[in-house]
Amino acid sequence: MPVLELTARIEPDIVGRSKRLWLLPDGLCLVQIIPSLRSFTYQRDEIVERTGPLRLEFYEKAAARVAAAGVPCAFRERVSDDLYLADYVPAPPFEVIVKNRATGSTTRKYPGLFEDGTRLPRPVVKFDYRCDPEDQPIGEDYLRVLGLPVDEMRERALVVNDVLRSWLHPVDLWDFCLIFGQTEDGELSVISEISQDCMRLRHQDGSPLDKDLFRGGVEGDEIVNQWSRILDVID
């Protein structure tokens, strides 16, 4: 069956917060982006049409650059506006977050340490346990007890940070999150989406180009307009 027919004829094998996933032969999967935006902090959870294709266009470009820098990515190819093929690697309940500025959970969970937006002297890497209703910071030693390659995940996350900052300049990358999966041979691979939905970006004029617009109460049409601006900057 052609992969594009799967979404109409077969129920997905996995449904998450922002993806539907169909398992395919040969270790592949078909992934459909759900155009959802969610903020636990600001109690918003909505479907914003047209954000899905914008996310996927960004992700396709970002994955190519990350892979070229030597960090394996599960992404294979886009097959429609909101569907792509990827290697199937099971997702662990942990994500890696890189922060170039103090913002978001940093200032909310640790009040008084930094002013919001403070540029950090070096990138900060932290790990979160992915759970509802809100992800929680987790100590690295817990991950080591589980046998996870914490140091390698940190190193690769910093490589991704360098790649994205260079590629996106002069847009300023404030922070982003990644999920690393492990293939059967133990290789780490970026299996999460890399897009406006999972990072904070600031235009040269200081305006947000990411999900902070949604967190701030901006309506869907304006979110789409602002997210489209980033595509005018990147190649």
Rank of each mutant, 00 (worst) to 15 (best):
I47R: 05
I34R: 07
F114N: 03
E77Y: 02
E49L: 11
C198H: 05
L188N: 07
P208G: 03
L23H: 09
H203Y: 09
F40N: 13
Y84E: 11
C131D: 13
T41Y: 04
N100C: 12
D162Y: 00
V171D: 10
I47M: 13
P133Y: 07
W22C: 12
P35W: 13
Q182G: 10
F214C: 02
D235W: 03
D172I: 05
D13A: 12
P137G: 15
L85C: 10
P2E: 15
D172M: 04
G217W: 04
D162M: 03
F176W: 04
E184R: 08
D175G: 01
P93N: 12
Y88Q: 01
Y84W: 12
G206R: 00
L54P: 01
S228H: 04
Q196C: 13
D235N: 06
Y59R: 01
I179F: 02
A67H: 01
L4V: 12
V89T: 04
C177T: 11
C73D: 03
F114K: 05
A102F: 02
L120S: 02
T7F: 11
R65A: 00
I194S: 03
I223E: 06
D45K: 02
R144F: 10
E155P: 00
E46R: 07
P35R: 07
F214M: 09
D232W: 05
W227M: 14
G216R: 09
T106R: 00
R38W: 10
W22H: 07
A68V: 00
L213N: 06
